[in-house]
Design a protein around this nucleic acid. Sequence first.
DNA 1: CAGTATCCCCCCTGATACTG
DNA 2: CAGTATCAGGGGGGATACTG
Lengths: 164, 164
Amino acid sequence: MKRTSIGQVECPVARALDKIGDWWSLLIIRDAFDGMRRFGEFQRSLGISKGILTARLKHLVAIGVLEMTPISDEDGYQEYLLTDKGRDLFLVTVSLRQWGEDHCFGKSEHHSVLVEKANGQRVQRLALRGRDGKEISESATFVRKVADTPRRPHNPKRRRAARR
Amino acid sequence: MKRTSIGQVECPVARALDKIGDWWSLLIIRDAFDGMRRFGEFQRSLGISKGILTARLKHLVAIGVLEMTPISDEDGYQEYLLTDKGRDLFLVTVSLRQWGEDHCFGKSEHHSVLVEKANGQRVQRLALRGRDGKEISESATFVRKVADTPRRPHNPKRRRAARR
DNA sequence: CAGTATCCCCCCTGATACTG
DNA sequence: CAGTATCAGGGGGGATACTG
């Protein structure tokens, strides 16, 4: 009964979620950012079953977010490393972290924090900025669909009703 | 067969994903940012079945990301509006969008873009900044676990081995 | 239109056992 | 240790029919 496909629409959010929007992928990626690279490390950290972990790692390798490299001169075993594409997901984890910190902890609960190596201080909160570099709010923006994007002079009959 | 719970760990990323990390929630939220508020709007936009949509909307209302408000003086019907907590998810969608734009479209494919209302220009890319406001890379940061957080002077026997 | 109710199937998930 | 293989169960998911 295949899930409705969300991977072919024009919305980048949908395409991104289609690739890494499942329950485990981002947690694996988070752990990878945290320095984990071995199968067993992920498994213990996540409390995930081996079968699922195998499938998820394969998927992440397949879409180019992780890469497998043999461990130097040891036999057989592999390590899972983030690719550049995978590292580009960092801000996704940061934005989730920020929201989690703000809304998912009780007053008396403590959580891990993202800090700078250089000085041990917490990083700044993420902020949306306009072209001029000044911070702007969500309400000052909107999503312009492809169909509404200004085209070159000779405008063919405007495509309509494309799903975002 | 309950999924392994990831909602009680000390990692804000995990807690956030536990709440809004399923396949549909962020897409519903994206649509809400896009101005959708009616059941039918979401349904048509997402191509999701009614049953699932009902469940997802209920969940999002339950965790305080959406709120239901009766439509003024019409009978019966409701609208689903983002709460402040929900609006705080904006940067999550932006970071996903950014990654999607970079890695999920072919050279010849077009996608929607996030622009400023004021001038119609695309917003800046998100960037991580240190305390001093200067942009820093992922490799210049690390996650400090609660157990490793410096405590007040009289240090009780350091808690160890907490799961992030 | 906005759901609720039902049915059914598939697959995701977890557990366990097995292999190199 | 790093998987593969297999199994069982539950629930997510789609489709359709029904209600106010």
